[in-house]
Design a protein around this nucleic acid. Structure first.
Lengths: 164, 164
DNA sequence: TGTTCCATGTAAACTGTTACATGATTAT
DNA sequence: ATAATCATGTAACAGTTTACATGGAACA
């Protein structure tokens, strides 16, 4: 829907715009493109530019209408598997000091992701529309929330209770 | 780690305590228990109580140490696929009124989940330890965040800009 | 000359869901 | 009687990741 692209282009496009909530590996992109073409949702043409081979896909009318049908369906709210919570759920089985260490290391990791997202903010703001940009803001606020929540859990480990 | 259970028990246990970030279907639980037993991480015994057949699993010493090894590993922060954001990313392709409708319906759905989580709060607070309870608080705050973010996007659709 | 990037693709292994199949007990 | 719940399990299907395989172009 955002123009013709090769599988490689798509991967890069995702890395730049949707990586914080959706990323796909080449091993899933290329077979997916094949399936989509077999079903007539996209067409491909092969291009050789400066000796470089590229297979460029473009969405068909059929594909567009199918996509719009999907878009018209309700936005489903699916509780996704959150691996970090799976581990935190059992964190009480570790000695307090170790649990706090784990949480601190986790916070560091999330902060790195947050920094990266923040850095990409100006670039995205230029190119993206309101909805696309809002998915980036979601990521930034969400990561900040995770950091706050983790810090809070550390405080509780140290016996500091916060008001409701 | 939380006592001996059958596959069915496990499913119910998850429904009551972890469903907001982790839920598994019977089609994944029963094969998983078989695999775990084949690898020696758990043992089973078959029980008939009041005519009811049950296969109860208990974790082995081997399983416990393996679990603790997993627990000692860093809490990984994996960006998960967020299906609702995938759709919002393309929401600009819908006419404004329709996009707002979608968001409003989405908010309603999230509110339902939030209510359910809130209702379970007192019950969980009794039974769960601090870490387990914190995963519930995570869910509650996270859902509230999603609602706020969605409302915000609706405001932006209506041309109302909020300060940074 | 070697490394990095561009570019496409396949195969094996794994995971998970949905739907189906079975059968007993319990409540209405 | 029959519907719901308890309880275990399998089969088909779909999709994903990781690793591998290939080859050209650009760069240092």
């Amino acid at each position: 829907m955002h123009g013709e692209m090769s599988g490689y282009d798509l991967k890069q496009y995702m890395a730049k715009s949707t990586a914080n909530f959706f990323d796909a590996s080449f091993g899933s992109i290329y077979p997916a493109l094949k399936r989509l073409e077999a079903r007539g949702f996209i067409h491909s043409r092969e291009v050789v530019n400066a000796g470089k081979y590229k297979k460029i896909y473009i969405i068909s009318e059929n594909g567009k209408s199918d996509f719009m049908n999907w878009l018209e369906e309700p936005i489903k709210f699916a509780q996704t598997k959150l691996d970090h919570l799976v581990k935190v759920f059992f964190l009480g089985l570790l000695p307090k000091e170790k649990a706090i260490e784990k949480l601190q290391a986790f916070i560091k990791e999330v902060k790195l992701s947050l920094d990266q997202l923040r850095k990409s903010q100006p670039r995205i703001k230029e190119k993206a529309d309101m909805c696309q940009f809002s998915t980036l803001l979601y990521g930034i606020s969400y990561y900040q929330f995770i950091i706050d929540w983790s810090n809070n859990l550390i405080l509780e480990f140290n016996g500091i209770r916060k008001r409701d």
